[in-house]
Design a protein around this nucleic acid. Structure first.
Length: 588
RNA sequence: GGUCCCGUGGUGUAGUGGUCAAACAUGCCGCCCUGUCAAGGCGGAGAGCGCGGGUUCGACUCCCGUCGGGACCGCCA
C-alpha cells in the first residue's frame, strides 16, 4: 500500500502518529520557507505542511508540485498551532508535518478546475469526464448512487429476493421503443436486440418458480434524449409471484421510504403513506400523469361557464367537446403584457393556441384579455372558484382535453419553479393507479396498450374489453416523485385466453404474436403463477435525491444529447473487415 | 424531422456597428515571501472572437449558411 491512512480520516486521535498519505494535490499555498498542500483522496482532504528548516529535502521536492499532481507524503500528525484551526475541514484541527515526499506522477494543468465549483461547459466536462468525476459534486453523486443501489440490494435480499442476470443480447420487440440492434456474425442477416427492459425474461423467471426476482438492469432504448432520458439507463427491475397490486405497491413503498430515511436523512418525505390518485384525478387536478404534489396551484375547470359565456373562443371549444380550464398564479397579478406573452409562448410548445388571462393587480385593478366579453355573474363565479384576490394571475387554456391538460400541467410546474414552490428538500412521492387499459391510436385506427402487452385489466373491467375497451382500467401503478415518473408496473396476465383476447384487441394477429411471443406464450401453459412487478428508474431517482435536474449528473460516463460519448468518441466507424464478417454493407 | 437558446485566452465572463491587433476574474509561468487555507506581493505569457460567405467605408457585434453544444416538441409499449 502506498498509504497507511486516508486523507479524510485523520483527526486529533492520530496526534503524533507517523502516517503515510497518498493522493492528489488539491491546492498548494507556497510561502517560501513553508508550503501547505491540501492533499485529497476519495475519502477527504488533509493539510500537509513542509518546512525548510525541519526537512529541507522534502521541502525542495514539494517546490515544483502543482494542482492534481499525485504525491505520497510521510510524516507526523500534528495539532495545528493555536488560532490556525480550519473549522471548514473535518481534519481542520490537525496537519501532517512532512518528512518525506515522493512525486508519484506529475499532472498537466487540468482543463477544468477540480478545486472550484464553477459551471463549466458540459462538453468540456464530458470530454474530460475522468477529471470532472474528481470534483466534489460528482464524487458525492457517485457515492449516493452506490448507496442507493446497495440499500436496494440489501433490502431485497432480506426480503427473499433473488438477483438474476438476464441477457443483454436478446430479441427485438418492435412494438416498444426503437431497438438497438446487434448483428449476428454466425447468422448472416439476423440481429439481436438490446433489451428495452427485461420484461419478458422476468416473467419467465416467475414461470421458473423464482417467485421473488430483482435485477439492477441496464436497459436500452434508441430514442432521442432528454434531460431525464439516456439511451442506456438503469432500472431496478423486480417481479413477484402470488401477489396482487397492493403487495407490490406496499413493498416498493416500504423500500423507498426506508431508503430515503437512511441515505438522504436531510430530505423530507412529503406524505407517508404515499398518497394515491387515480389517473383521472391527477389529470383533472394536475394536468399530468406524473404530478408534482409539492405544491398546489391545481387546475380548475370552467368549461361549464365557458359554454354560453358570450366569449366565442370559449364557447366554440366548450361546445365541441373541448375543455376550458385554468390555474391561479398567486403573486403574479402585476405581470406585464410582455411577461404574459412569454407564458403564451411557453404553452404554445404544448399546442395550446392561446392563453387567456385575468390579472388582478396589487393596486386592485383588473386587466384581462377576454373579461370584457363575459357577463358580470360569470366573472364573479370564476373569481369564486379560484378564490381570486388582488395580486393573482388567472391563466386559462381552451382546447382539446389533452392539450388543455398538458399545457396547463406544464405551465403549472413552470410557474411553480418561478415562484419557488417546489421545495428542493421535499420528496413528493405518490402513486397513480387506474390507468386506462388501452388508448385509442387514431393514426393506426387501433387500440394500443397504455402500459404493455402483458398488463392485466382490472378483473371487474374484463367484460368491457368486448364492449367499451376505452373504459377498461389496467392493473397498473406508476410511482411518481416530484413530477417525474420514477417507476411503473402492473399485475400481469397469467391466463392464456385473456392474453389472446388482449392480442386480438390491440390488433396483433395470431401468427405475429406467435412469432414474437411464442416462447412466452408457450411458457405460460406450463403452470404460471399469478404475478406482477415494477421497474423503477435508478438514474432518475438518484438524480432527484442528489438535487440534480439532469440524469447525466448521476451517470459516470453518460452520452450527450446526440447519443455520443464525447470522451471516447463513440459511436465510431469500424473496419471494412468487421463489416464483411457481419455481412453488412453500408449505405451512407 | 421541427422550435428556441448558446459558441470571445486553459476555465468562467464582459464587450451587441468604429473608442477592441479585445477587458475582468481565475488558472498558468517567473521572482519574492516561515502559518496559510480561494494565502499574499511584484512581473509576464496567453484569444483576434466556432467555421464559411454576405451587408457595410468599417463586423466579436447585423444577415445567411454550416459545424458543435444545450433545452424542448415529435418519439420514449
Amino acid at each position: 500500500m502506498y498509504k497507511s491512512h486516508t486523507c479524510g480520516e485523520l483527526t486529533a486521535k492520530h496526534l503524533d502518529q507517523e502516517v503515510t498519505l497518498a493522493g492528489w494535490v488539491h491546492r498548494r499555498r507556497d510561502h517560501g520557507g513553508v508550503t501547505f498542500i491540501d492533499l485529497r483522496d476519495r475519502f477527504g482532504m488533509v493539510q500537509i505542511v513542509s518546512n525548510t528548516d525541519l526537512y529541507p529535502e522534502a521541502h525542495k521536492i514539494m517546490e515544483p508540485v502543482r494542482s492534481e499532481w499525485v504525491i505520497q507524503a510521510k510524516g507526523w500528525v500534528r495539532r495545528r498551532p493555536e488560532g490556525t484551526f480550519n473549522p471548514e475541514m473535518s481534519t481542520g484541527e490537525i496537519e501532517v508535518e512532512v518528512r518525506e515526499v515522493k512525486i508519484l506522477n506529475p499532472a498537466k494543468t487540468p482543463p477544468i478546475y477540480i478545486n472550484k465549483e464553477e459551471e463549466v461547459d458540459e462538453q468540456v466536462r464530458l470530454r474530460y469526464r475522468y477529471l470532472d468525476l474528481r470534483k466534489e459534486r460528482m464524487r458525492r453523486n457517485l457515492v449516493l448512487r452506490h448507496q442507493v443501489v446497495k440499500f436496494i440490494r440489501d433490502y431485497l435480499d432480506r426480503n427473499g429476493f433473488l438477483e438474476v442476470e438476464t441477457p443483454i443480447l436478446f430479441k427485438t420487440t418492435p412494438e416498444g421503443a426503437r431497438d438497438y440492434l446487434v448483428p449476428s456474425r454466425v447468422h448472416p442477416g439476423e440481429f439481436y436486440a438490446l433489451p428495452q427492459s427485461p420484461q419478458q425474461l422476468k416473467q419467465l423467471l416467475m414461470v421458473a418458480g423464482v417467485e421473488r426476482y430483482f435485477q439492477i438492469a441496464r436497459c436500452f432504448r434508441d430514442e432521442d434524449q432528454r434531460g431525464d432520458r439516456q439511451p442506456e439507463f438503469t432500472q431496478l427491475d423486480l417481479e413477484m409471484s402470488f401477489v396482487e397490486r397492493e403487495d407490490v405497491m406496499r413493498l416498493t413503498e416500504d423500500l423507498f421510504t426506508r431508503l430515503v430515511a437512511e441515505i438522504v436523512p436531510g430530505k423530507r418525505v412529503l406524505e407517508s403513506p404515499w398518497p394515491r390518485f387515480t389517473y383521472d384525478e391527477v389529470m383533472r387536478r394536475f394536468g399530468k400523469d406524473s404530478p408534482d404534489i409539492r405544491f398546489g396551484m391545481e387546475l380548475i375547470d370552467i368549461t361549464d361557464l365557458a359554454a354560453g359565456s358570450g366569449f366565442r373562443v370559449f364557447e366554440e371549444i366548450a361546445e365541441s367537446g373541448g375543455h376550458v380550464r385554468g390555474i391561479k398564479a398567486r403573486g403574479l397579478g402585476d405581470y406585464s403584457r410582455r411577461q404574459i406573452e412569454e407564458l403564451i409562448e411557453f404553452v404554445a410548445q404544448y399546442a395550446a393556441k392561446g392563453l387567456a388571462y385575468i390579472a388582478l393587480t396589487s393596486a386592485g385593478e383588473q386587466r384581462s384579455s377576454f373579461a370584457k366579453y363575459l357577463p358580470e355573474e360569470t366573472l364573479t363565479e370564476i373569481a369564486r372558484r379560484f378564490e381570486a384576490e388582488s395580486g393573482d394571475l388567472l391563466l386559462f387554456v381552451a382546447a382539446r382535453p389533452e392539450v388543455t391538460f398538458e399545457s396547463l400541467g406544464r405551465l403549472r410546474e413552470f410557474l411553480g419553479d418561478r415562484l419557488g414552490l417546489r421545495d428542493p428538500e421535499a420528496l413528493g412521492f405518490c402513486w397513480v393507479v387506474d390507468f386506462p387499459f388501452v388508448v385509442w391510436n387514431e393514426a393506426e385506427k387501433r387500440w394500443d396498450p397504455s402500459h404493455h402487452l402483458f398488463t392485466s385489466p382490472m378483473p371487474e373491467d374484463a367484460p368491457l374489453l368486448d364492449s367499451e375497451p376505452g373504459r377498461a382500467r389496467g392493473q397498473q401503478y406508476d410511482m411518481v416523485l416530484n413530477g417525474y415518473e420514477v417507476g411503473g408496473g402492473s399485475i400481469r396476465i397469467h391466463n392464456r385466453e385473456l392474453q389472446a383476447r388482449v392480442f386480438e384487441l390491440i390488433g396483433l394477429e395470431t401468427e405475429v404474436a406467435q412469432e414474437r411471443f411464442g416462447h412466452i406464450l408457450e411458457a405460460f401453459e406450463y403452470g404460471t403463477p399469478p404475478h406482477g412487478g415494477i421497474a423503477s428508474g435508478i438514474d432518475r431517482i438518484c438524480m432527484i435525491l442528489a438535487g440534480e435536474t439532469n440524469i447525466r449528473e448521476v451517470i459516470a460516463f453518460p452520452k450527450n444529447q446526440n447519443a455520443r460519448d464525447v470522451m471516447a468518441g463513440a459511436p465510431s466507424r469500424v473496419e471494412d473487415e468487421q463489416l464483411e464478417e457481419l455481412h453488412i454493407e453500408l449505405d451512407v
